[in-house]
Nucleic acid binder design. Structure first.
Length: 501
RNA sequence: GUGCCGUUAGCUCAGGUGGUAGAGCAUCUGACUUUUAAUCAGAGGGUCGCAGGUUCGAGUCCUGCACGGCACACCA
């Protein structure tokens, strides 16, 4: 009431008074409910169905229920109060009247604040206006909310607060809850796909003595007892292939990987990757796998293979287009990398393109730039880009008829790369040479060069069967299927700079 | 990393050319027994992101910094 008190102080004051009356809500450990809000609604509908054409006398055929949740709205009419209670399943309206919730209890309900967690018991019915409702006979405060919630009509708009305090975003914005529910469905669909084909789900180390399996800069951490630095994995690939050496013929892992690189709408330092390996299969099998997997995920998330992304209508029907990487680049910007061998030649050939500063770029970097600038944005319908040069693919098997290329593809949807797959290189002699070439690139200044991994080579020397492998950026696929254009919208707690203290 | 834009009440947002900081929701007081963005009457609430500068006077102009967004660069 006094003007210098803000809403937090008012609420703390109420809590203090409750404690002084021996009614500390934080003393409560559990609360048994008979229904969720959705179950109350369903039970009301069931009662109506049972009654058929006859009008229901809710006084007689309503039922007792106990529900719990967060008080999200209050419409006080004096002797009668309407309120909305939200729980994980949805919401249910509450009706508080003096003749059912008598005397002091009625006044106590009025002391509640929006945001409080309460448990209620009462009589379920449907109002004249058609709203499923519980008329309270008693209630209990289960947790006091000390801070005011965001405004109900506009929700929470400030993106910075939405990411930093995602719980408020989830409370205030139903469509955000929907996106993360879809994310869960997507992950279930992925597991269902692999489990149904006899793949074994495994967990491999996130802390690795040597990183590998992708081209990226790692995070470094330190183990005190071992007194050694460890890398957070940039990919699970090399461990999963060790498992294939060990006779696990079909394995997959869904897990977090960590890459010490820039943060933007398409990159978070930690993100969720799917990798799968299938012995006795090759990259064409992985193409079929991708088509089926994306179909299953889309059906789980959207119940439909067609969706719209950034204004493009996209169709995930299997039978995706295939495009040669080098041909596509040549068509799009006129540079034929198959005719270029040195870094200098590549820079010369790209001289007139809009690629920014090329002085630090080697052949592989320029290839990437040309592709990202001129080809990828146009790969809207699902497309497999195939026939990658061996020099940018240190872990993939060569094509027998064109040994400078490898049996590899990257799938693109909506102009975005969503994965990577190849026939796994299983020749330990060739693998050692590729690692050594990467090591030379590293010495020459390529910060993302793949390090030489003797332990992995040893495993391969025992014999890796011919194997097809695939990786997929789970977050990016979920972005596409939910229509989000920013990775942060599908990661619950995206990385941000700390707030100023 | 570079450029552009943003930061005003708990939340959502207004605030030409520099002149006492506004609204809606939320909060508080009062009225109201079928409301559901309830309604009606009234009230309180601000370090205008932070720090400097210009000016008689800065939310507004200038500089720096912080955080965020977008684009580019880097990068799956």
């Amino acid at each position: 009431m006094p003007s210098d008190e803000d809403q937090v102080r008012q609420r703390k004051q109420k809590l203090q008074e409750l404690k002084e009356q021996g009614q500390d809500p934080f003393d409560i450990h559990s609360f048994d409910r008979t229904h969720t809000s959705a179950q109350v609604v369903a039970a009301i509908e069931a009662a109506e169905t049972a009654a058929g054409d006859e009008d229901i006398d809710w006084q007689a055929s309503g039922f007792e229920t106990t529900v719990a949740g967060r008080l999200m709205a209050v419409r006080d009419q004096g002797k009668s109060i309407w309120a909305d209670l939200h729980d994980a399943s949805g919401k249910i309206q509450l009706w508080v009247t003096e003749n059912e919730l008598t005397g002091a209890a009625f006044e106590k309900f009025r002391e509640l604040d929006i945001g409080d967690i309460i448990g209620v018991r009462g009589h379920a019915f449907r109002t004249r206006r058609g709203e499923p409702t519980v008329q309270l006979s008693e209630f209990q405060l289960l947790a006091k909310s000390l801070r005011p919630l965001p405004e109900k009509f506009h929700g929470l708009q400030d993106v910075e607060i939405r990411y930093r305090r995602r719980y408020l975003d989830l409370l205030a914005n139903p469509q955000v809850r929907e996106v993360f529910a879809k994310r869960t469905e997507a992950l279930k669909a992925i597991r269902s796909y692999f489990d149904g084909r006899d793949f074994q789900e495994v967990s491999t180390p996130m802390m690795q003595p040597l990183y590998g399996g992708a081209n990226a800069r790692p995070f470094i951490t330190h183990h005190n007892t071992l007194d050694m630095d460890l890398y957070l994995r940039i990919a699970p690939e090399l461990y999963l292939k060790r498992l294939v050496v060990g006779g696990m013929e079909r394995v997959y892992e869904i897990g977090r990987v960590f890459r010490n690189e820039g943060i933007d709408a398409l990159h978070n330092p930690e993100f969720t990757i799917l990798e799968g390996y299938q012995a006795y299969a090759d990259y064409t099998d992985m193409m079929a796998l991708f088509e089926e997997l994306l179909r299953d995920i889309a059906l789980a998330v959207n119940r439909c293979l067609q969706f719209t992304y950034r204004g493009h209508d996209i169709d995930l029907e299997p039978g995706w287009e295939r495009k040669s990487l080098l041909d596509a680049i040549k068509e799009a910007c006129g540079v034929d990398f198959s005719q270029l061998s040195t870094d200098e030649e590549a820079r010369e050939a790209c001289r007139d393109l809009e690629l920014g500063d090329m002085t630090q770029d080697n052949w592989a970097a320029l290839l990437d730039k040309c592709f990202d600038r001129y080809v990828a944005p146009n790969l809207i319908q699902p497309t497999f880009v195939i026939d990658y040069p061996v020099r940018v693919s240190p872990l993939a098997k060569r094509l027998p008829d064109r040994p400078h290329l490898v049996a590899r593809f990257e799938p693109f949807i909506g102009g975005e790369e969503i994965g990577n797959a190849f026939s796994e290189l299983n020749d330990p002699v060739d693998q050692r040479e590729r690692f050594e070439a990467q090591a030379r690139a590293g010495l020459a200044g390529d910060a993302e060069a793949h390090p030489l991994d003797e332990d992995y080579l040893m495993a391969m020397e025992y014999g890796l069967p011919p194997t097809g492998g695939m990786g997929m950026g789970v977050d990016r696929v979920i972005m596409l299927l939910t229509g989000c254009t920013n990775l942060r919208e599908v990661i619950l707690f995206p990385q941000l700079r700390p707030e100023e203290s």
